[in-house]
Simulated assay, not measured.
Amino acid sequence: MGKVTEKAKPVALICGISGQDGAYLSKLLIEQGYRVVGTSRDAQMGHFENLDRVGIRDSVELASMATNDFRSVVQVLSRFEPQEIYHLAGQSSVGLSFEQPVETLESISLSTLNLLESIRFLGHPTRFYSAGSSECFGDTGGLPADESTPFKPRSPYAVAKAAAFWQVANYREAYGLHACSGILFNHESPLRPERFVTQKIVKSACRIAAGSQETLRLGNLDIHRDWGWAPDYVEAMFLMLQQNSPQDYVIATGETHALKDFVAGTFQALGLDWQDHVVSNPDLMRPSDLRLSRANPIKAHKNLNWQATKRMTDVILAMVAQAQLSLPMH
């Protein structure tokens, strides 16, 4: 049997390839035998350190595409004719969305619409995955959210993600597109930038353990989240697009912990007492924030045979181990 040529490989297009999920998903798809094309607003000038960090930089093709420009999207989709598109791009910070609501809505909602409309316009048999967010649920009163839980978004980011979710559902129902959303709860890894609170905690704790005299300043320590492991979650994305019927799925561990527990676990892993090094700063509180986030991922387990392999403590240990390796040597 002859070797599969580059031309014969299925093509997967990843929008947002430079981020945490984009890098892990690219690695997974390459291992599955795909030709992976990643898009960036400017592929010549983009930062792709995460692809280097997972060891696949030379195995990925890069193309420039502005997802807020319909013509740009159509041109790239025409050129590569992907069998699968994973839309992971867009402004990814809840906190930043309060400062940049217009950019957030455009980068998430308009880009999703342009991709869906381009797929419909071109008529290729393309399967589409859109990165949804647990932030769409808002406050569920402590009840675990599943696929039938109504959305009550509490931030510009969540509003944009909710709009994108309904666009996907509309194109699936109105035009028969094989399109679905993964409603992902928090998922972390060493590839997270430090503006995400988990990485901020881990990096700061590692520096303190190495002798830094800094104090870690955080916002509300009593928020509760479901924290999982990013490589697990990209596997769920892939599995969603392999199903015969496109459906939306909640992806989570099913376990919720306070941010205080994440902080305590991180410092404990380094032999420290977090209370000696951490303060809660009211200036870091958001205009509105979810107090409690809970998930029920049973549908993904039943339909996709997917479940999280790592829980919060495992995630902390993996992130701490990697952060320690990257500390500058004295």
Rank of each mutant, 00 (worst) to 15 (best):
Q307S: 14
V168N: 05
K9L: 10
S130T: 00
N305S: 14
A321L: 08
Y249D: 04
T313C: 00
M319N: 15
F262Q: 12
A8Y: 01
R311L: 15
P328S: 12
R286T: 01
G254S: 12
F165S: 07
H224N: 02
A63S: 06
G123Y: 03
S78W: 00
E135Y: 05
H187M: 07
P297L: 06
S288N: 09
E61S: 09
L317V: 04
P10V: 04
A158G: 03
L177Y: 07
A308S: 14
G142D: 00
A318V: 05
A300W: 08
A66D: 11
A236G: 05
C206H: 11
L218H: 09
Q243P: 05
V315C: 08
L191T: 14
W306H: 06
R53C: 00
S204C: 13
Q307H: 12
A8H: 10
S26A: 15
F267Y: 09
I183C: 06
N303T: 07
D273I: 04
A295D: 01
H277Y: 15
R291P: 00
L51Y: 02
N220M: 03
D52H: 15
N296T: 08
D276K: 13
L122N: 03
L25K: 03
L292S: 11
L13G: 06
D314R: 05
K161T: 07
Y233H: 13
P282Y: 11
T149Q: 04
D276I: 00
Q243C: 10
I56W: 09
Y171T: 08
G182Q: 07
P150G: 09
A160M: 08
L325M: 14
A8S: 14
L327S: 11
L216P: 09
L77E: 02
A205E: 08
D273Y: 04
V94H: 01
L290F: 01
S288I: 10
G211A: 12
